[in-house]
């Protein structure tokens, strides 16, 4: 517990410093944040173009796909903002600057995650939120029960935690393969692209894989299907729709374990 507190405090200190530095160049910050927003909006433009040719995709309307898009993109945006810099760890190991982090009184995880904290990535979060809010206004026929209303923010936060766990596992993997930073993109950005679309368009094997192996289905698919009043393609029991926070917690625990194993390995081999 004490270590977690030290980590959060250290993270906060480093992030605050980078934010101060960023804010010294407000215009540049605004431009790059906007650039990030537009950059991530490009794939939504592709979806919009698709729906200019058709009313439904895999049985889902544009507003329904936008709900999927908005939730998963906001989740990824949050995880990317908070932990996205973890993927620099491979470079730090290769150039030897990892050692300088190990002699400071703050957990290494917090130092790497906070290093060069890029506030401009808030652009991705904003873009996701904009699409999410639009989809909520555009959806019709959704029964907004209290549970459904609560499920939306819960799924965004649980999704962010799941993506955060993936970022952490990807970073831990770099303890063994220092220049394989790109692998995690398959699960983060790839997972994001995947869960922007309805599960009905993918093969059952793929859906099973992202439900039971890399549980990206819990980022938004399962809870969002509940909100939309649809059945999931695998016919899972109903309580699964609410399992995202639990799955997120399990993912984080596993990621923590992977990170510790990686760091212990580094400290016993020095490479």
């Amino acid at each position: 517990m004490a270590e977690a507190a030290a980590g959060i405090r250290g993270y906060g200190l480093i992030v605050a410093m980078w934010v101060r530095t960023t804010m010294a160049y407000r215009l540049s910050f605004a431009m790059t944040a906007l650039g990030n927003l537009l950059m991530t909006a490009a794939d939504f433009a592709a979806i919009a173009i698709m729906f200019s040719h058709t009313d439904v995709l895999g049985g889902f309307t544009f507003a329904e796909v936008a709900l999927l898009y908005g939730t998963t993109s906001t989740s990824l945006g949050l995880a990317d903002l908070l932990l996205g810099n973890l993927d620099r760890i491979g470079r730090r190991i290769r150039d030897g600057t990892m050692d300088t982090l190990l002699v400071r009184p703050v957990p290494v995880f917090a130092q790497i995650a906070a290093d060069r904290f890029a506030l401009r990535r808030i652009g991705r979060v904003l873009q996701g939120l904009i699409v999410l809010v639009w989809s909520l206004t555009a959806l019709d026929g959704v029964a907004w029960t209290p549970v459904a209303v609560l499920l939306v923010p819960v799924m965004v936060l649980a999704g962010a935690a799941i993506y955060g766990a993936v970022f952490t596992c990807g970073a831990a993997f770099q303890f063994w393969a220092t220049d394989a930073a790109e692998v995690q993109n398959s699960f983060t950005y790839g997972g994001n692209t995947l869960t922007q679309y309805p599960p009905t368009i993918f093969s059952k094997e793929l859906v099973r894989g992202v439900t039971f192996v890399v549980p990206l289905a819990f980022v938004n698919w399962l809870p969002a299907l509940h909100v939309l009043g649809r059945d999931d393609p695998l016919g899972l029991p109903g309580w699964v729709d609410f399992a995202s926070p639990l799955v997120a917690a399990a993912c984080c625990a596993l990621a923590g374990l992977a990170w510790r194993t990686g760091l212990r390995g580094y400290r016993s081999t020095g490479s």
């Binding site: 220049d179 394989a180 790109e182 692998v183």
Partner: peptide
């Protein structure tokens, strides 16, 4: 950059 290439192919 072998590992990077393999990672890229995978992605």
């Amino acid at each position: 950059y072998r590992a990077a290439t393999a990672a890229g192919v995978f992605t």
